[in-house]
Write a protein that binds this DNA or RNA. Sequence first.
DNA 1: TCGTAAGATGTAATCGATTACAAAATGTCG
DNA 2: CGACATTTTGTAATCGATTACATCTTACGA
Lengths: 356, 356
Amino acid sequence: MSRKGWRSGKGIRIADVAHLAGVSTATVSRVLANPDKVRTKTHDLVMEAVQRSGYTPNSVARNLRKRRTMTALVIVPNLANPVFAQILRGIDDELTRSGYGLVIGNLDNCAEREARYVDLALSRQVDGVILMNGRVPASGKRTMTEAGLPMVAMCAAIEGEGIPNVVVQDREASRAAVAYLTRLGHRSLGYIAGPAGNIIAAERLTGFLEGVVAAGLSERDLVRWEGRFVFEAGVAAAEAFLRLKRRPTAIYASCDESAIGFIKAIRAAGVRVPEDVSVIGFDGIEFADYIEPTLTTFRQPLHELGRTGAGVLLKMIRNDMKPEDWHIRLPLSLLERDTTAPVSSRASEMKRRSKA
Amino acid sequence: MSRKGWRSGKGIRIADVAHLAGVSTATVSRVLANPDKVRTKTHDLVMEAVQRSGYTPNSVARNLRKRRTMTALVIVPNLANPVFAQILRGIDDELTRSGYGLVIGNLDNCAEREARYVDLALSRQVDGVILMNGRVPASGKRTMTEAGLPMVAMCAAIEGEGIPNVVVQDREASRAAVAYLTRLGHRSLGYIAGPAGNIIAAERLTGFLEGVVAAGLSERDLVRWEGRFVFEAGVAAAEAFLRLKRRPTAIYASCDESAIGFIKAIRAAGVRVPEDVSVIGFDGIEFADYIEPTLTTFRQPLHELGRTGAGVLLKMIRNDMKPEDWHIRLPLSLLERDTTAPVSSRASEMKRRSKA
DNA sequence: TCGTAAGATGTAATCGATTACAAAATGTCG
DNA sequence: CGACATTTTGTAATCGATTACATCTTACGA
């Protein structure tokens, strides 16, 4: 490439193209942005110069001038969690359709990392933020809110901050899980919870307790274990379970990973699923269908959730919110598979006997 | 906030801070970038103005002026794959240590999406690119290379393009897998391959075939199935396997997901693992330890891989490459678990008899 | 052919920071 | 105290696009 008359530097600027085509930079810009506002002849002339020079507009400059970046930030608690990976696909799809890009802010379950992304947002590198971490990062709470930065909460709701929420019906599904298990005859239940401070975990727990009340069970029919939405939490719960004198006949795990860890550990100890214990999970990750027995669980509409949430963010950015956009709750669906069964005859007998 | 003397607009600019502190923008900039090049008194004055105004520098403007964004792009074939999720953590860790940010470009197994990220790179929104997709995107091949954009290939090597490679020893591990199985006495093997055009898949296949030769086996001792690095591929392979008259006694799956799908499907058909068939996977995903029986597999050093790759990219950006940085191959480690066992007595007997 | 409206193009300001260079302030020493 | 070296600070150019406004063309009817 030894064309002359160009800057010797590296990048090709709009000015270079303009010079090459013998027009002004304004014209080049117009050709690229509003081809119909320019004479055909000029258009072709400029396009040829663009081709020849291999020009690509510098979007950093464009973003500065236009005061927007066409990019959204998504804060994710943990990328390794397949639930979030799926939601991200939905978000990406929707944003792409509107020409927006996506920056993923992975917290890796570590709240301190929020600061980094707050900075990204405040330094005007993104036009909006999707929060899947259940809160406006503390370090930017005042600033982000005051700056009027468009934000949407997904998965975990953020109440009372003027932020729209797009979530699934965790509570209802939890209630339904309990109802499902009691319908199978189970009257003593175990619950593997999520992390203590976690909003989603709290929702699911609330639903569980509501379901318990609705089923007419008392606290004495329950056992609860802490968890952290990971395999190990299920394993730990299993250890506690195995030490129990009077074991529940059904377990509700607030996420599939915990359910899977739990099942693995109790089966290793000789407990049969579902003959001795029924287990139901939550999330509907792909893996749940590949363990043995296949896991009964509630499936989240992950892709739809992502698309919907991104859609709301776009409306927010465009200042086009409708009343119904501020609070969206998508339903889950029960996947009945092989880890749940009617309470075993032995247990039923005990129950029947005590009833008589 | 009704301080006066400021622009009524939304964002607070460096000029506002300068005005508030009674200094020039240059001084504010210096206070923030080189605090020691400024008198203490001025420093404090400016900092107070920064506090009071809640100023955050606009990094779009800074990036334009500095002609760099402190951001790297990582092109990932499929975010839902836990292998990549883990690698990303490693990359993120390393980049963060150097003050760099990270944009994830998820292809979702769809090569057309490359174009979008090529544009991101060419429009100078990132300082470098990590390619995990095994090739320089066709749409930007010429341009990206000519522009001298720092690029690094990870996972899947890209040969002969002047791009450094950071990969794992796929071929060696595949060879080792075969050696391991033959050491257990298996003489007839099945192989579940990766997608046809995929470079990683090719490497692993090559290693497998090399191992077969080294073990003195012939093509007649082998069965091979196509796969696509997903569960379903394992299930499909299992169906083919079950139809076989003379079944291999050991299967090597080129990724854990396929191995897991395979195991699930053959067990459902009554074939025992490892008594009837040994199975070994590849990758070492967390899940492999939660199926039944636990999966023998090769673990990739994912986090290290990510950190190393990001490290090489940073050197590339800083023009600080050393000869040994251009080709790095990390070793894998065998996780011996429960899906592999010495060939069953029946099979051994057959073999012994035929030898005699 | 000319006047005028509509359309095409050019000029220069702008986005918000950084930084080379100039100017001013401070400090040091004879 | 004054001359000069050394810090500090300010002025203005710069990064590379977009776009309001001004200017120049073109087209068309009188």
